[in-house]
C-alpha cells in the first residue's frame, strides 16, 4: 500500500501544475479561514470581526469550516482527472502495466492517493477549526466541543466520494477536459431529472429520489450553514424545518457510490485494450 501511494505521490508532486492545484485546494482554505478569524480593520472606518457574530462558536464552527473548505475540492478534482488524463496522453499507463504494475494496483494507487489527501485535508480543517473555536467560542466544555465533530467525518467521506467520481470520469473520458465536462453535465442532469420527477410525480418523492443521486448525496452530507446561522440570529422563524445534521444513511449512500465508482474504474481498465 505504501509502495502504491509513494508511486502516485511521486507522479503528482514532481508536476508543477498538480503541486499548485494541491496547494490551492488544501492549503488555501486553511489560510482563508485563519485570516477571516482575525480582526480586520476596514480602512479605519470600522472593525470587522467575524468572531463576534458567533459563527466560530462550538459546535457550529465544525459545520461552517467543513462546508467552506469543501468548496475548494474542485481544484483537487482537476488534479484527479488530470492524473488519469496525463497517464493516457503520455501513454505512461501502458508503460506502467508493462513494467509490472497490475491493473488493480494502478487503480488502487490512485484511490490511496485520494484517501491520503482527503485525510490530510480533514486533519488540517479539524486542527484549524479546533484552535479558532478554542479562541473565540463562548463555551469550551469538552462535551460541546466534540458535538457535531461528525461533520469532519462527513467532510472526509464527501471528499473521498467526490474524488472517486472524478477518478471514474477520468477513466471514462481519458482526457481531463472532457472528464470535467462530464461532471458538469452530471450536475445538470441531476437537476433535470429532479425537475422531471417533480413534474410527473410529486415534489416529495422527487426529493427523496434526488437524495440518492451521486452529487446531491455528497452535497447532503454538509448542507449550507448560512440558514442555520441566520436561524440562530432570528429565533422566531422556527416555521422553516431545516435538517442540517449528518445522518448515517447519507454517509452510507456516498460510501456506496464511492465503492461503485472505484469498481467501475477498475472494470473499465480491465476490459480496455491500451
Amino acid at each position: 500500500m505504501l509502495r502504491l501511494l509513494s508511486l502516485e505521490l511521486q507522479k503528482l508532486l514532481l508536476n508543477r501544475t498538480s503541486k499548485i492545484l494541491i496547494f490551492i485546494s488544501f492549503i488555501l482554505p486553511f489560510f482563508v479561514i485563519l485570516l477571516s478569524s482575525l480582526k480586520i480593520n476596514v480602512f479605519g472606518f470600522f472593525t470587522l470581526e467575524l468572531g463576534e457574530l458567533g459563527i466560530f462558536n462550538f459546535p457550529v464552527i465544525w459545520h461552517l469550516t467543513t462546508f467552506f473548505a469543501s468548496q475548494f475540492k474542485f481544484f483537487f478534482a482537476i488534479v484527479v482527472v488530470s492524473m488519469i488524463g496525463n497517464e493516457y496522453s503520455n501513454k505512461t499507463i501502458k508503460q506502467n502495466l508493462i513494467d509490472g504494475l497490475s491493473k488493480k494496483e494502478f487503480i488502487l494507487s490512485k484511490f490511496y492517493t485520494i484517501i491520503f489527501f482527503s485525510i490530510v485535508s480533514t486533519l488540517l480543517i479539524g486542527m484549524i477549526s479546533l484552535s479558532i473555536g478554542m479562541y473565540y467560542s463562548s463555551y469550551t466544555e469538552f462535551s460541546l466541543i466534540i458535538r457535531e465533530t461528525n461533520f469532519l467525518l462527513a467532510y472526509l467521506v464527501k471528499l473521498i466520494g467526490f474524488f472517486s467520481l472524478c477518478l471514474f470520469f477520468g477513466m471514462l473520458a481519458k482526457r481531463s477536459a472532457f472528464a470535467l465536462a462530464f461532471i458538469f453535465i452530471l450536475f445538470i442532469l441531476e437537476w433535470i431529472l429532479f425537475a422531471l420527477m417533480t413534474w410527473k410525480i410529486n415534489m416529495d418523492i422527487a426529493e427523496k429520489i434526488q437524495n440518492f443521486f451521486p452529487l446531491k448525496s455528497m452535497y447532503n452530507l454538509i448542507e449550507q450553514p448560512i440558514q442555520r446561522i441566520a436561524m440562530t440570529k432570528i429565533p422566531d422563524k422556527t416555521a422553516i424545518v431545516y435538517d442540517y445534521a449528518v445522518h448515517w444513511y447519507e454517509i452510507t449512500i456516498v460510501l456506496g457510490w464511492t465503492a461503485l465508482f472505484i469498481f467501475l474504474s477498475y472494470r473499465l481498465l480491465k476490459i480496455r485494450d491500451l
Binding site: 509502495r3 509513494s6 508511486l7 511521486q10 507522479k11 514532481l14 508536476n15 508543477r16 496525463n86 503520455n90 501513454k91 505512461t92 501502458k94 508503460q95 506502467n96 502495466l97 508493462i98 513494467d99 509490472g100 504494475l101
Partner: peptide
C-alpha cells in the same frame, strides 16, 4: 513482467520528470 524488460513502439515516460526520476519510478514499480 517484473522480471521482463520491455519497450513498445514509442518510449513512454513522464515528460516533466528527469531521466533519473523516471527510472526511480520504474524501480518502485518493479
Amino acid at each position: 513482467l517484473k522480471k521482463v524488460g520491455a519497450i513498445i513502439e514509442r518510449p513512454n515516460f513522464y515528460p516533466y520528470m528527469t531521466a533519473e526520476q523516471n527510472l526511480k519510478l520504474v524501480c518502485k514499480i518493479k
